[in-house]
């Protein structure tokens, strides 16, 4: 009983810290969304106020829709992100399964080689990548971006998924083998469903940097037809004049899909992060 007040104090402290962090993390996003629905004057006059009847305006969104092919950029971003995530998860899970399930010569070396990528930023190889893409005629294609992002995301995926694959019951896989399932069926039907929370975690952690990336779209695919939304939004930021309505509207639009995906994945994500910690 003596410990109760201390425990309660600790709980209050933890909640205060977490609450403060939540505010810090959410406020900028809220500000962007709020201000994207206001006219230019009230953005600067009262940046912290939510839009009301007098300040409400869709001018930013109208500008965004008029200027350039915003829907097209959006589509490009979606194709690149979803495509990359798909390949990251597919190849990452397959590699993780092979590395943890089968004993073969060079197994550990291969794992370390793949995991090394977690520490070496892929941007260091930009020049080489650009040369390669140019030679294979992939410059200004979405394929180039998907290839690069898949390579960028694989190390972390292999690393995290291997850890989870190890926890999948050997008995379950063996039961499948005795029932005559091929290794592919064992992998896709028995193992993948079990590691789904880990896949969601990897999906979110890989998705955000891809969606937000400006570097590779600028270098590998800057053409009008292959622009991603991050690149597209840059047109509103000028050296001398910045169209804040449009920038805020573009940002709001580009945040939305990530938010939706996050909400979809978040339950799995939390399970993935806390797996092992909480049995």
């Amino acid at each position: 009983m003596k410990q109760a007040p201390i425990l309660r104090m600790r709980r209050v402290a933890v909640h205060t810290v977490l609450g403060a962090y939540t505010l810090v993390a959410i406020l900028p996003v809220l500000l962007i969304i709020m201000n994207s629905f206001k006219d230019r004057k009230s953005i600067f006059a009262q940046p912290l106020m939510p839009p009301d009847a007098s300040s409400f305006s869709l001018i930013g969104y109208e500008t965004v829709m008029r200027q350039g092919d915003f829907l097209g950029y959006f589509q490009n971003s979606l194709i690149v992100t979803v495509g990359s995530i798909f390949f990251i998860l597919l190849f990452g899970a397959m590699a993780a399964f092979a590395l943890t399930e089968y004993r073969f010569r060079g197994n550990i070396f291969l794992f370390l080689f793949l995991a090394l990528g977690v520490m070496v930023p892929i941007r260091l190889g930009t020049v080489g990548i650009l040369e390669m893409m140019a030679k294979s005629g992939l410059v200004n294609t979405l394929t180039a971006l998907i290839l690069v992002y898949t390579a960028q995301g694989l190390p972390l995926a292999v690393f995290v998924l291997s850890e989870f694959m190890r926890t999948v019951s050997d008995d379950l896989k063996n039961a499948g083998r005795i029932d005559g399932l091929s290794e592919y069926v064992v992998f896709f039907r028995l193992v993948l469903p079990v590691v789904r929370p880990a896949m969601a975690t990897v999906a979110i952690f890989s998705m955000i940097p891809i969606w937000n990336d400006l570097w590779f779209p600028l270098i590998l695919a800057p053409s009008e037809s292959t622009k991603t939304i991050t690149l597209g939004a840059q047109v509103f930021i000028g050296q001398f004049v910045t169209n804040w309505n449009a920038v805020l509207a573009a940002l709001t639009l580009s945040i939305t899909p990530v938010l939706i995906l996050y909400v979809l994945f978040s339950r799995q994500l939390i399970r993935g992060i806390t797996a092992g910690a909480v049995k």
Binding site: N174, I178, D179, R189, P193
Partner: peptide, 30 residues
């Protein structure tokens, strides 16, 4: 010879039932 072709069946300590199939589905799969 692979396990499925040896004419054996195995019962595991952890049961190892396929979680996505019903009891009937588990028995039918092999």
């Amino acid at each position: 010879v692979p396990p499925a072709k040896r004419g054996i069946a195995m019962v595991f300590q952890t049961y190892a039932l396929y979680p996505h199939l019903t009891a009937r589905g588990n028995m039918e799969l092999g």
